[in-house]
């Protein structure tokens, strides 16, 4: 009974309005009225879209992406080149620094050497002078001692002659006094010379 009623309704509706029928009786997707239209417009719109995307938009995006990649690559290359250059410069700088450091130490060493040589030379000269002076002075002292011993001898001879004259009251032979003083002084001379 229900089925009959449904069929009747469908028949009535389909004879009056197909749009209403498709809406009322289930899925409008299964109503073939506009299938051809949808297919036609789909193919038309999609074709236009495909052509514009394929010929116009995608090449533009691709070009832009490639450009960016190339730019990045170029920039990187440039940066690497600059880095290489700066490293080279740094190495040069280091070399210069090292050389100059070496030179400086060499100069310092030379100066030190020269200075010490100078000092040594002057020192030895002065030492030599001192030596000469000392020998001279020693000789002087020796001479002085000798002469003083001689004068001591003559003084002690005189003293001895005087003492003997005073004690004994008589003048002794001068040569015998001389001999005994010489003997005593010779005995003791080793102590002072």
């Amino acid at each position: 009974m229900n089925l009959m009623r449904g069929l009747f309704l469908i028949l009535v509706l389909s004879s009056t309005n197909t749009v209403l029928f498709s809406a009322e009786a289930g899925m409008p997707q299964l109503d073939p009225t506009y299938w051809a239209s949808q297919a036609f417009w789909l193919i038309l719109v999609f074709s236009v879209l495909y052509v514009s995307v394929a010929k116009f938009y995608l090449p533009k995006i691709k070009k832009n992406l490639d450009d960016r990649e190339n730019k990045i690559k170029e920039d990187l290359d440039k940066a690497n080149e600059l880095k290489r250059l700066s490293e080279k410069k740094l190495a040069e700088y280091d070399l210069i620094m090292e050389n100059s450091k070496k030179e400086i130490s060499k100069t310092i060493l030379e100066a030190k050497k020269k200075l010490s040589e100078d000092i040594e030379m002057k020192k030895s000269a002065i030492e030599k002078e001192i030596e000469i002076e000392m020998t001279k002075t020693q000789k002087d002292i020796f001479d002085l001692k000798k002469s003083s011993i001689k004068s001591i001898n003559s003084i002690s001879k005189e003293i001895a002659a005087n003492i003997i004259e005073k004690i004994v009251g008589d003048k002794l032979n001068e040569s015998s006094i001389q001999a005994s003083v010489d003997e005593v002084s010779k005995k003791n001379l080793g102590k002072y010379l």
Binding site: T33, S37, Q38, W41
Partner: peptide, 10 residues
């Protein structure tokens, strides 16, 4: 004879 009308789907 084919209806190719512009519709809301189009």
């Amino acid at each position: 004879g084919v209806d190719l009308s512009f519709t809301n789907a189009s």
